[in-house]
Amino acid sequence: MWSYFCKRLGLSVVIVLCALLALFLLLHLIPGDPVKIALGTRATPEAIARYAEKMHVHEPIYYQFWIYFTQVLSGDLGADVFSNRSVTTIVLEALPSTLILAAVSLFWAALIGIPLGCLSAVRPNSWFDRLTGVLSVATIAIPSFLVSIWSLLVFAVMLKWLPVIGAGDPGDFWDQVSHLILPAFAVGLGWVGYLARMVRASMLEVMNENYIRAARAFGLRERTIVFRYALKVAILPTITLIGIGFSGLLSGTVFAEIIFTRPGVGKLIYDMVMNRNFPVVQGAVLVTTAVYVLITLCADLVVAWLDPRVRDSL
């Protein structure tokens, strides 16, 4: 188990390092002056001078990378081109809102999707299963940004049930909740279908295993067989999937944040792309990647810990 943990952790670190390298190289491989590319055309001469000095642009490229690397390691992600605020502060301010949106979306999706998948798998080919199947495919097929736009149109503009934009008044909890409903609905909807199908498929696969037939032959109750035998095995790939699929979820939050003008990392990156403020983009993408890698790591470790075969063999 320990060696697996170390291996997996090592891999995560390597991935983040690669992301770091890629973000650095992206800037330097494009023909032209890296400083101008990074800061865009509207940057002030002071900002350009500051950036050039900080990144040691006149030194050899490996030295520049080393400087960048040590800065990131010490928590310094650079500075905003226009306001000169610390990128670390800007990203950390935006991060909680995005994480809350992602977590709430995933939570409600799992709360509905996993039981739907279980119930479908218990009675395959029943009307309930067929209905769930069609709805799942439909929710997966509709792109989440379209769900955002359409739900904005229907619930906020036409019916005026829910607020249109923003994250709500920071002091007012219920106002914040009401601002969270539509984005969370839009981001999570596809995941309801995705999880339902995933759980159903792995449940059906497990229900066909010899040991389920053996459990029936030993006269175990159907309830025990479904929930304490089949689900216990079938949930493992689902957990891995949730971990890996977090990438998709983060993409979903980008659109939801932009469409509902809700502050967050996605909106931050988009705005900064529009303003050609590359240092902030660089820092925010790096943090997003790190968060993603961390969550995948956790999911893998949970699976390894739950499955005695994996637990022992590692």
Partner: peptide, 11 residues
Amino acid sequence: FQDPMTSQIPV
């Protein structure tokens, strides 16, 4: 059962 490898639940 014939095959004890597959007829006993691994977890």
